[in-house]
Nucleic acid binder design. Sequence first.
DNA 1: TGGGTGAGCGCC
DNA 2: AAAAGGCGCTCACCCA
Length: 745
Amino acid sequence: MYLVFDLETETYSSHKRKASPFDSRNHVVARGWKAQNDTKCSYEYYGADRTKTYLRIPDQTTMLVGYNIKFDLLWEMANGNPDLHSFYKRGGKIWDCQYAEYLLNAQHPDSQMAALTDVAPLYGGTKKIDAVKALWEAGCKTVDIPEDLLIDYLVGTEEESRNGGDIRNTELAFLGQIQRAIRLGMLKMIQDRMDSLLATTDMEFRGLHVDVNEAKRRLNILNAELAEAEAELAQYIPDDLPFEFNWGSKYHASYIIFGGTAKYSKQTTYIDEATGELARLKTKERHYVHADGSTHPTEPGIKYLSGKNKGEYKTKMVDVPGELKVKYQDFTYKFPGYTEPKDEWATKNVDAVGLPVYQTNSDVITEISIRNIPFLKVLSKKQALDKEIGTYYLRFDEKKKEYVGMLTCVQPSDKMLHHKLNHTSTVTTRLSSSDPNLQNLPRGDKSEVKAMFDSRFGEDGEMIEADYSQLEVVVQGVLSGDKNLCDFLRAQIDFHCKRVAAKFGIAYEDALVWCKDENYPDYKMWKARRTGCKEFSFQRAYGAGAPAIAAATGMSLSDVEELIEAEEALFPGIVEFNALVESAVKKSAVPFQSPNDAGQWKTYRRGFWQAPTGTMYSFRTYDAQEWQRKRGITDSFSPPEMKNYPVQGTGGEFVQGILGLLWRHFISKDFYNGRAYLVNTVHDCVWADVHKSVRDEVAADMKRIMESIPEYYNNRYGMKIDVPFPVEVEYGPNMNKLHHWKQPG
DNA sequence: TGGGTGAGCGCC
DNA sequence: AAAAGGCGCTCACCCA
């Protein structure tokens, strides 16, 4: 039996969370629900009463249904709902209509983060009551919304017999989605992903513990380095510069390196068109009056002969020219530049005289670094420091008058950071992360940012990270079934060394030693060669063509083409699989209208490919390339997208399936009696925060469950996966100090 | 002043 | 024959 529910809460934002359940100013204002056989919705209105309330979940309930249900679940967890854990423990499931809609529509951008008011009408539901939304948008607090109106919004009006509103709309969407899911062969897949949503909801609720002292210590060091870099850079700013130079500006950086004309404005005097003279303010001054009627500011003239001022000098107020007037006017300043740019570095932006502004990114800086430009090194350093401080630590933004950076998301009271893991924001079904994004933290070899993430259990705790090795290569093997690839995967071949061996005509066994054994005499050279091959394989995985790979790796085009040819000969199954996807996409293509780059409406197509698990991927066409146009082709699918989505998406799907299994396991263990929590996931890895006393048990369980992908998908989906999904587990005091974990004994 | 955009860059 | 995948965040700049 299902139970639909929804909450209306107070909406204060803190730490980038709207209506945050972690903000003590917020509370549940009203709650609505409807069980499967109810003929109308139920509700409770609590108004300003801040007593913690919770949803009763009857024992016969097997599924909770909601719209963006993570929000409501987080509130139930924050309020300490006593029914939730036992509901989960007896196998209770969820259905999030927002997530289902996104998957049913093949992750079409219009279905990403879709609103209930847009989805409900598709299933016979109604649009939301605009008045409530308008009140919220006008800054009205939820408690100040009239009770009648809020309840109508939540469960429908009395005329609708309270069988309407968000609750009924959610129920209608749910029932319709189930039918669609069955028809499309997607039910099992969606249900599995709903369990992953439970896992990430739990991760958000638990949050990450931040060692604020460590963060501050590191921030101080970075700020000192930044000040030093800026002081050094200051000497390269022209002495006569009439405006403030900003090294952080891409425009300024381009001008000073490549030359260019900056536009700046300053307040200065100007010619009054009426008089032809410098414009001045008008002002009044008291002057002495002389007998001839003239006036003078200092020399007295005639006196009053009578009246109350009798005997005093006669004066009057006269208009005189005042201060010179100033206004903002645009000026230009030309920088000579240090070196010549390449045409291909031009950006779309132009300087004050219409010449292009050039890229000053790290690739460009690297390329011109041999040209003896004095400040390049320290400029790169400043750019890197700006990025690290502003994104991952804390910086006061003078323009916004507020702090920016990841540390703004840390709650001062308990040093916890509740990030977001989003399930409906990508075209490939991958998860995304935001507020802050914990999926793009700099790696340990680049920065110490990760050191601030430590255990909530203090000295008694540790962090665990469990990673799939070469997940996308394994998935490529599963999808294509390519014999050689699968053989290599089963033999645990290091693909990068394999490529080194092929490219340099040496034995694979030699490549393994030469690239990995630090004691081998030419280790450094071979390691670099392996890194080059690694880059090649990443580019290949993304579906990149030969010219792109050549540009990225610095290899010659013919070398790259040779490598690609060798790959295709070695893995013919991949070529076949790619062709299969392409033909399915083209066969299923349906036309749609969309504006092109020039803003004119044009006909494009959208085609589909469905994975063995049921996940649907959709691809749109783009304006054809010039050489295609000559042959009468107007639009075409993107080969890189068709090669990449199935692999990236299926990898993501496997990890999500596993997140669900991991979370179910943690639930069954009562989170190891409150001593271990899943806290984050980054595409092919999972983080946990554990008490040391259960570390080995948790690590072993995680490894076992994560490596069970073949078993799980073969049983549940009838797949025939016969390659391993090896997982490496690491642990340590924080996320920057991890070492390899091995099963004890 | 505030939203939108492009460039740039962090991760997988 | 040809085609560089997926995200989110910060910054500067533009424009309404």
